[in-house]
Every structure is written in structure tokens, then in C-alpha cells.
């Protein structure tokens, strides 16, 4: 283990200061970054979750990763955020290897499946947490950014509410606002509509689709193909730890790949026939 590695092991992850990261709205030519995943492998014990997974997402693109539960979609996202370390392979963001030490030239944010709002903080404090903790700007500027980001997700005036007072869909939207407050170049959505009813799913879908105009590179992990087709510039299906098909919504709909077809037809069947699951246990 190198001296730097030992230091990191002893004191934990370093925090970049607000100055290193730039203020809100740090200028770049294009907000989005290019993400490249190369031959990513991950196993948990005997279970091989990712097998030589390759993926490339272009700057400003909204890429949807879909597939059945347990196929490794969320594990892939956790590798990109650095929450998991790959057994083999690497991830490049604008050519920068995520496995390498040192400050990053980009920012990323993640919207968690469970929303992961801090229950002891108000909505406004949740959204402004990154700005406050990294001392990016003063309290007045933070309040302005919070108001602006909450407006983007249709939650103006909810700054003082506590997470416990919000519906599932509202929590997701606050989580998106919190991610946007980071002024990210890459935003990752982990099952943004999981556990939501169709009305709330549509609301979240609209928010994600609406945010595409910001030209932030977005990676959306979902098993909801309707959402995928609605928001994705391109979609990719993960099956048994590999990306088996990539294409535009039209290409995916027209694919002859039997695995993708089987997944699409299962989803269509569930949506088309109410009570399908109870009739076919």
C-alpha cells in the first residue's frame, strides 16, 4: 500500500473544498461529460454481478439502463459514484480515470432509489447541504440557489417542510433538486420511479425529461421501460452483468434480440393486463 493509500485508509475520503469545485454555475463549455465504462467486473462472493461491461455515454446525453431486478444496474451506478470499487476494469469521465487519486475536474450527483433525504434536515437544508458543507457561498446565496432548484422541480415554497411531511414523489423531486444544487456535469438516477404510483411516476418522468434542456449527462437506471422510452436519448439493456443491447428508443422497440424482446413483452403484458401477476403467479 502506498503512503497516500495508507493515509486515505487512516483518515478516510478527503473532501474537496468549495473553492476547488468552483461556485454554483462553474463555467464549462458544455455542462455534460463523456462517461466511458471499460470491461467492468464485479463479484460479491461467488456471485458475478458485472461481467466485462462496456458502456459509453456522450456529453449531454440521457442514457437509460434497463433490465430485470438483480442484473447489476444499481451496482454499475455505485461504481460510477465511487461507492463500490471494481474488481477489474475502469471508468473514465471526460478521460479522467475514476480510480485515480486527486481532485476531479467534474461534478456528479446521484438521485437515490430511496430518495435518501436527511430526515433531521428541512427540505431547504437538504437541497443546500452541499453548498453549505463545502462553503461554496454564503447563506443568502444558498437560499437563492435552493429556491431556484426547488422551482426547477416544481416545489417552490417547500423550503421549510420536513421530509416526513412529503409524499414519495415529492421526496424524489427534492432529491433531484439536491442533486441539481451541486451543479453537476453528470447526474445519476437510481430507479427514480420505484415505489411510485402511475401519476407520481409521470410527474418524475416529466421532471427528468424537462431537465434534459440543461444538457447535463444523465444516466437513468430503471426497470420501467415506459420511463426509459420517454426520457432516454439512448437505452441499454443489462442482462446477466453485460450490456446486451444499446440503441435509440425506436431501435430498442424494433430489436430482434430475444432477451430484449422477452423483457419488453413481459412489461407490455403487465401493463396491458390488469391482474396479470395474480393470474400467473
Amino acid at each position: 500500500m502506498s503512503a497516500r493509500g495508507l493515509w486515505r485508509f487512516l483518515v478516510g475520503e478527503a473532501e474537496s473544498s468549495g473553492a476547488d469545485l468552483g461556485g454554483p454555475g462553474a463555467e464549462r463549455e458544455l455542462p455534460g461529460v463523456r462517461v466511458e465504462v471499460q470491461r467492468l467486473n464485479k463479484a460479491f462472493g461467488d456471485l458475478q454481478v458485472l461481467r466485462n461491461l462496456d458502456l459509453a455515454v456522450e456529453p449531454g446525453e440521457t442514457f437509460v439502463i434497463f433490465g430485470p431486478s438483480g442484473c447489476g444496474k444499481s451496482v454499475l451506478l455505485k461504481h460510477i459514484t465511487g461507492l463500490l470499487t471494481p474488481d477489474a476494469g475502469r471508468i473514465l469521465v471526460d478521460g479522467e480515470d475514476l480510480g485515480a487519486e486527486g481532485p476531479r475536474r467534474f461534478r456528479m450527483a446521484m438521485v437515490f432509489q430511496s430518495s435518501a433525504l436527511f430526515n433531521s434536515l428541512s427540505v431547504g437544508e437538504n437541497v443546500g447541504l452541499w453548498l453549505k458543507e463545502h462553503r461554496v457561498c454564503d447563506a443568502e446565496a444558498i437560499a437563492r440557489v435552493v429556491t431556484e432548484k426547488l422551482a426547477l422541480v416544481g416545489l417552490s415554497g417547500w423550503e421549510r417542510a420536513m421530509p416526513a411531511e412529503l409524499s414519495g414523489g415529492m421526496k424524489k423531486r427534492v432529491s433531484i433538486a439536491r442533486a441539481l444544487a451541486v451543479t453537476p456535469n453528470l447526474i445519476l438516477y437510481d430507479e427514480p420511479t420505484a415505489g411510485l404510483d402511475p401519476v407520481l411516476t409521470e410527474q418524475i418522468g416529466k421532471v427528468v425529461a424537462d431537465l434534459k434542456r440543461l444538457r447535463i449527462t444523465s444516466l437513468v437506471v430503471t426497470h420501467d421501460l415506459n420511463l426509459g422510452f420517454a426520457v432516454g436519448d439512448r437505452l441499454g439493456m443489462v442482462h446477466e452483468g453485460r450490456l446486451v443491447q444499446v440503441g435509440t428508443p425506436a431501435e430498442i422497440r424494433a430489436t430482434t434480440n430475444p432477451v430484449v424482446r422477452a423483457f419488453i413483452s413481459t412489461q407490455t403484458k403487465i401493463l396491458a393486463e390488469p391482474g396479470f401477476l395474480t393470474k400467473n403467479p
Partner: peptide
């Protein structure tokens, strides 16, 4: 509870060290 409900992961993705915070 914070760990189970992914709040610690959320802190890490916000580049906030959970030990410090």
C-alpha cells in the same frame, strides 16, 4: 437508519465525509 436508507451513501456522493459530518 441513515445507512440502511442510503443517507450515508448520499453524503459520500455529495463529497461530504461521513466521519467529519
Amino acid at each position: 437508519a441513515m445507512n440502511v436508507y442510503e443517507e450515508i451513501d448520499a453524503l459520500k456522493t455529495l463529497n461530504i465525509n461521513p466521519v467529519r459530518y
